[in-house]
Design a binder for these strands. Structure first.
Length: 281
DNA sequence: CGTCTATCCTGTGGGC
DNA sequence: TGCCCACAGGATAGAC
């Protein structure tokens, strides 16, 4: 599941490839990908536009375009964004759309290819900077590595919440970019049970949890993301963070802290992995 | 408003 | 071996 570290991995690889280049043409293979746009509308909005910046906000790619519009893309469950040089073999299946980039000094012609077996991924053009801010601010809280995300801000969101703490971490308006993998890993690192009621977290626990969220995300970025099944980076290469999971997807295996078997449960409707002994708080 | 559930979708894998 | 069905889950709409 692409979360912040996976999206950031791709962004870092694609930014030097795409920034400053014009989109020669956009080609949509699957009309679901660009809803609520029509295919024609989407292709017309992008044709000839220059990519000024390839940024990220939470799990969204944000491509700032000349003329003031922006292309916002989300990989959801199984999406991938690849750079496909013109002489490379295009993927045989699940190709939802391509942004064709002409070659320039030192950079080969090719396309940004959106590949997505399960078809949940999205691409949307937002007309203005103001509309973009409105779009993102309605959906996303602070970036985890911004100073505005800290113990007190997390604690504020836990107040009065009966939901399990994991559900709060998965709420993108609390902190942007955490998904199922990194929620499990951050809670383990903080010694907090995923099903603990959010309102019962102490200020100190929120402080610690804010830190372990950043630690887990940073470790994921360092490992170029986690490839459980579908995730590949912009060159089609797997990340390695799945080899460093402490509890996620490790049902029955030894907890790295105490050696007890990692347990799988269901919290907030999601498969959840934790250690009963090390996450009692 | 907070919380929970269904929905979208398709490849995978467990069970028989 | 092959078939069927449950399952995986990010974001969002809708129910309560």
């Amino acid at each position: 599941m692409p979360e912040l570290p996976e999206v950031e991995t791709i962004r870092r690889q694609l930014a030097p490839i795409a920034e400053g280049r014009a989109i020669e043409a956009a080609e949509v293979n699957d009309d679901r990908w660009v809803l609520p746009h029509t295919v024609d509308e989407f292709e017309n909005l992008l044709a000839g536009r220059r990519i000024l910046k390839l940024g990220r906000r939470g799990k969204y790619f944000v491509l700032a375009l000349d003329g003031g519009s922006a292309l916002v893309m989300h990989l959801r469950m199984t999406g991938n964004l690849l750079f496909l040089p013109d002489d490379a073999e295009p993927p045989s299946a699940h190709l939802r759309g391509q942004l064709w980039l002409s070659g320039d000094q030192g950079r080969a012609a090719g396309s940004l290819a959106f590949v997505d077996p399960r078809r949940f991924g999205t691409a949307e053009v937002i007309a203005t900077q103001e509309a973009l801010n409105e779009y993102l601010d309605a959906r996303l809280g602070p970036e985890p590595f911004d100073a505005s995300f800290d113990g007190p801000s997390l604690h504020q969101h836990t107040r009065g919440r009966k939901s399990p703490v994991k559900a709060v971490l998965l709420d993108q308006r609390v902190v942007a970019g955490v998904g199922n993998i990194y929620a499990d890993e951050a809670l383990y690192r903080a010694g907090i049970a995923p099903h603990k009621r959010a309102a019962r977290l102490t200020r100190a626990q929120c402080e610690l949890l804010a830190e372990t969220i950043r630690d887990a995300l940073a470790a994921g970025i360092d490992a170029k993301g986690a490839s459980i099944d579908d995730f590949r980076d912009a060159y089609g290469v797997k990340g390695s963070f799945q080899d460093q999971f402490l509890v996620h997807r490790r049902e029955g295996l030894d907890c790295p802290g105490c050696g007890a078997a990692v347990v799988k449960t269901r919290v907030a409707g999601r498969g959840t992995y934790f250690c009963r002994a090390c996450q009692k708080n």
